[in-house]
Write a protein that binds this DNA or RNA. Structure first.
Lengths: 146, 146
DNA sequence: ACGAATCCCGACCGCTGGAGTAAGGTAAGA
DNA sequence: TCTTACCTTACTCCAGCGGTCGGGATTCGT
């Protein structure tokens, strides 16, 4: 039950973009630096985020990425699903698939917990926005005066 | 963010034991059948459960396993931790490790969500017991009349 | 005493998926 | 037209999951 680096890095990058929101496109090199994600890897992670419409890209010189929407309107859950797929601690309780598709005969007792667990995770991720994160953060990483 | 089969099978086996609670030791072969877990694999999974004191084993003929405590006193979270390790959607928010050991400089904004997520998971798993599961289950798997 | 039933335990092993790296192509500004 | 920067595919490495196998130690029934 670990979030992979895709989700971790993806969210970090989005937080960086949120902090820079409104200043026009930011090149990958800057985002990579700010979010401490390997540039070449980050490049790959931005692809799904763009395709999902969470960020918009500008090509050419002075190009880069920026949030497609203000930070208040971007839920962590959206980012999570793009990077990690449908939320599901177990295959039998996938968000997308038809409910009640438990492979066990007539359903099994354990499914109850996994269902509660999934709903709990969804609740947390979907009730938090990028704006919440940058507002509550004690300080910005890798940036502080003497 | 998937629970591995260790957690899945471990819980299933414990639910089986919970249903058979009070009838003396049940051999692995029966548990494997009832919980639909490969016998040889299940054998391996019972080891940590026994060491953690969640089940007690009886060796020799007519031996087997049984719950060390009644189902009402066994939290799903306990089983989970034995099978999957400390609850933590991300290394920086491990249950066991010293709090505030975020490797990022001065903490990062994303940690807030992971912390909320972890607490949410803990809450769900620790507030559910084996008794809850067998009470709410619609029917027992692999057992129904014509 | 002996053998069958059962737990105990370490060794082994194939495969998938995560975590990147590499390299070249395409578009847009100076 | 050169440089910046995004876009895309392909490839590699390796840890861990998901088991299997084989043998040993215990205890019960006869």
């Amino acid at each position: 039950m670990k979030v992979s680096t895709r989700g971790e890095y993806g969210l970090r990058a989005m937080v960086s973009l949120a902090r820079m929101y409104g200043r026009g496109p930011m090149p990958l090199s800057v985002i990579a630096q700010d979010s401490a994600v390997p540039l070449a890897y980050l490049e790959q992670l931005m692809l799904p985020l763009r395709r999902a419409g969470l960020v918009v890209s500008t090509r050419g010189a002075h190009g880069g990425y920026q949030l497609a929407r203000p930070p208040e309107q971007v839920k962590v859950g959206e980012i999570y699903r793009v990077m990690e797929g449908p939320i599901a601690p177990m295959d039998c309780v996938r968000e997308d698939a038809d409910e009640e598709t438990c492979p066990m005969i007539d359903g099994c007792a354990t499914r109850i917990v996994w269902l509660k667990l999934r709903d709990s995770i969804v609740e947390v991720l979907d009730s938090t926005t990028l704006a919440d994160l940058i507002a509550q953060a004690p300080r910005r990483p890798a940036e502080q005066p003497a």
